[in-house]
Nucleic acid binder design. Structure first.
Lengths: 200, 200
DNA sequence: ATGGTAACTGACCAGCCGTTCAATTCAACC
DNA sequence: GGTTGAATTGAACGGCTGGTCAGTTACCAT
């Protein structure tokens, strides 16, 4: 009993990545076996190795894909007028993008320690690129006198931690909708850096 | 070759917990074997089971001990005058306590999914108790007109995420000392909830 | 000196791990 | 209708897993 109907290579590959993302997020990279992933796809473990050289690459590829998508989407944002608007836009974007991909976000933040050094360096570089986007907004805003920030790097990390925290509790269909959460968090982010004007 | 000198039971127990905490934080619960823990203590794997019924209890005990210590220390805080002072005190306490226990914090936030349901419920209840402390501060402050908060629960989660994020990057002997970090974060926390007075 | 016992070893258990690969199956092409 | 080759199976590899336990050691009280 090999393949059943039609050519599967273009279907099985994405299905493996989806199953791995789902299982890694739920149980953690180290706790998930290749056989579990294969079972979720409906295939034998050996077949996975037609699509990934090993388990580690499966993890690294998921994380890289997520961060590259995040960076691309961030770069595609329209230019906003003024520091407050830029920060509000970033906050809303960050929450929206993360809320829609809870599994990928979870993995990207929790499985860093399971990456081999080379993969870790690559992923870390992408993460830093994204942080730099926010840091630039804060730096410019401070230079323009729009924000009150004792330390730009600290404010960057604090805001990202706050905004990303949404993924820990947000559930579709919960008490608050996505738009409300975005508005509330954008408002808090602006206030936290002492924004004078209102652009939430 | 059994025990070498003196009675070890009061030494080996804590050493096992310390080794487990260290290794779980570094590599993750699922990725650490009982034999690795035993090796770090300088003992054979079987000896671990004189001090813990199984690996799962080792994890649950570490998390429970951490959260109970956190709650006790929080409860021992002197009463602060007014909402701003209370929030500033909480922010400083939270950062200080977490900064000093990076391994325990890491485990408490990352290994929840590796807890069996019964243990998870117990740990989650402790975590919620701690959140309620902050939420009470915010609720009282809002009622007193000191804070501007659209949603108290959201603000609670946002602040905790922001404050806890410090443990992701803070290193002893880094660019900023503990006192500076506490001051900057307490200030941001106050501003984020629209505190009118200054009590950072 | 000797018996008791707390502390620990080291071998063992069944079972799962990531990974490999010869053999098989089946759609597509000639 | 036979051939090709991509897709997949299923068994196997050595090695590691959490956990058990009979046996050994070294301290302590007597």
């Amino acid at each position: 009993m090999a393949r059943k109907t039609g050519s599967h290579s273009e279907i099985t590959g994405p299905r493996i990545r989806a199953a791995a993302e789902h299982l890694f997020a739920r149980h953690g990279y180290a706790a998930v076996s290749m056989r579990q992933i294969a079972a979720e796809v409906g295939v034998q473990a050996g077949a996975l190795y037609l699509y990934t050289p090993d388990k580690q690459s499966l993890l690294a590829d998921l994380m890289r894909a997520h961060l590259e998508g995040l960076l691309a989407a961030c770069a595609a944002l329209p230019e906003a007028p003024g520091p407050e608007a830029r920060l509000a836009q970033f906050a809303r974007f960050h929450i929206g993008y993360h809320i829609e991909r809870p599994d990928a976000v979870f993995i990207a933040y929790m499985e860093l320690r399971n990456l081999e050094p080379a993969n870790f360096a690559a992923i870390e570089a992408l993460r830093r690129q994204y942080e730099d986007r926010l840091e630039a907004i804060l730096r410019d805003g401070r230079a323009a006198g729009a924000f009150t920030i004792p330390d730009t790097k600290l404010a960057t990390l604090a805001l990202i931690a706050m905004l990303t925290g949404v993924t820990n509790w947000y559930r579709e269909g919960g008490r608050l909708g996505r738009a409300e959460v975005e508005a509330i968090y954008a408002d808090m982010a602006l206030k936290a850096v002492g924004a004078t004007g209102i652009a939430g």
